[in-house]
């Protein structure tokens, strides 16, 4: 099991990645989750329960062509004002066992999309989370939150 922690304050100097307490010199970290969709591909309530797919890889600085899997384990990502935790400790990395927390709140059944791309080589950063928020009154909401 990996305990991966990503931290950034918004610039490259403050950005760190550790795995099980040790620095992980990386060229790129890419996390993509796609869930919470109905049979037509439209966002729906249910999140991970609806099924989906996920990829979470790190390309190390030593060997950028090789992708190293983050899971099974826990990935904690700290951004300025935001915190995302993705956890999948299932040995076979079954998607249904994925848990997602956003700012300490369990959004496993609300997650629609999560994209985190920290690409040091190409100097690209992107972190976006999309949640399905059902409402008692009024229309349900698909909220896209730009983290970075």
């Amino acid at each position: 099991m990996n305990q991966v922690v990503f931290k950034t304050e918004g610039d490259w100097d403050s950005t760190t990645l550790t795995c099980n307490g040790r620095d992980w010199p990386a060229a790129q970290m890419l996390v993509q989750i796609e869930a919470g969709r109905d049979e037509y591909g439209s966002p729906a309530r249910g999140g991970v329960r609806d099924g989906g797919q996920m990829s979470a890889v790190v390309r190390s600085q030593d060997n950028p062509d090789q992708e190293q899997a983050i899971f099974p384990g826990t990935l904690q990502m700290n951004f300025p004002g935001h915190e995302v935790v993705v956890e999948n400790v299932h040995p076979n990395f079954d998607f249904e066992f994925t848990r997602v927390l956003y700012n300490q709140r369990d959004v496993t059944e609300q997650i629609v999309d999560l994209t985190v791309n920290i690409d040091a080589v190409n100097n690209e950063v992107q972190a976006v989370i999309t949640l399905y928020r059902p409402h008692w009154l009024g229309a349900d909401e698909v909220a896209t939150i730009t983290i970075l």
Partner: peptide, 19 residues
Amino acid sequence: LAVLAKAFSSKGRVRYRNY
């Protein structure tokens, strides 16, 4: 009123928002 509003105002509708 809440149930009626829910039933008639949002059934099948989804609002997209960006933050």
